[in-house]
């Protein structure tokens, strides 16, 4: 992304991310979220630092600031602010951040097989489906079972989150694609559990 381009306004070469060093005009926004925030492509991020960057960039890029500037800069400001906000949403959440980095590294996000039951959950899911079916039929007596299953899924999810955290660190250290593969597996499992929890919540709330 850091290849040298020239400024749309003054024609001088631009190396900074957002502004031309020579004429200070706003440049077309970087589309990669990490580059946009001026961050290394890492999975573990300091959230306070991220927030600080978000506020600083908001002040510099928001359309409010470009009201009395050229049409071109106003358009860039709108585009840049959208990327800033979209990027902040994606990067501040570890799961979406990891998904973003995986896609960036060429992992196919469409091929994520969240519908495949993780083998260690097979038996549990089978039991849960049975209870849910009874619950749907109006059998209130299985409510405690369903609730217990949900609690167990919460625990599972927390376990995965802890695992993800250590894998993130490992990846940042080694940049190994094998680790990314493991992370993708964990994310798929997590997504599967999330879907299950959503299904249970829907039934419990009725």
């Amino acid at each position: 992304m850091q290849n040298v381009t020239s400024c749309w306004n003054c024609g001088k070469s631009v190396e900074e991310v957002h502004f031309c060093e020579a004429c200070r005009s706003l440049q077309p926004p970087a589309t990669n979220y990490y580059d946009f925030f001026g961050l290394e492509h890492k999975l573990n991020l300091d959230l306070e630092d991220l927030e600080k960057r978000f506020y600083t960039l908001s002040r510099r890029l928001h359309p409010d600031v470009y009201f009395r500037r050229s049409e071109q800069e106003r358009q860039y400001s709108l585009d840049a602010s959208a990327i800033l906000n979209d990027g902040y949403r994606v990067l501040r959440n570890p799961v979406t951040r990891a998904e973003y980095l995986l896609a960036e590294e060429g992992f196919d996000s469409a091929g994520r097989k969240s519908q495949n039951v993780p083998p260690e959950l097979l038996e549990e899911v089978f039991d849960l489906n049975e209870s849910l079916e009874e619950f749907r039929q109006g059998d209130e007596s299985v409510r405690p079972q369903v609730e217990a299953a949900e609690r167990h899924l919460f625990e599972k999810r927390e376990e995965i989150d802890r695992e993800l955290e250590s894998k993130f660190e490992e990846y940042d250290r080694t940049k190994s694609r094998d680790i990314l593969m493991e992370i993708q597996g964990l994310l798929n499992k997590r997504q599967y559990i999330r879907n299950l929890i959503e299904e249970i919540e829907k039934e419990l709330v009725g």
């Binding site: 359309p63 709108l78 959208a82 906000n85 979209d86």
Partner: peptide, 8 residues
């Protein structure tokens, strides 16, 4: 509740 401007 996405901050605007927002895009997809």
């Amino acid at each position: 509740n996405s901050t605007i401007p927002a895009s997809a």
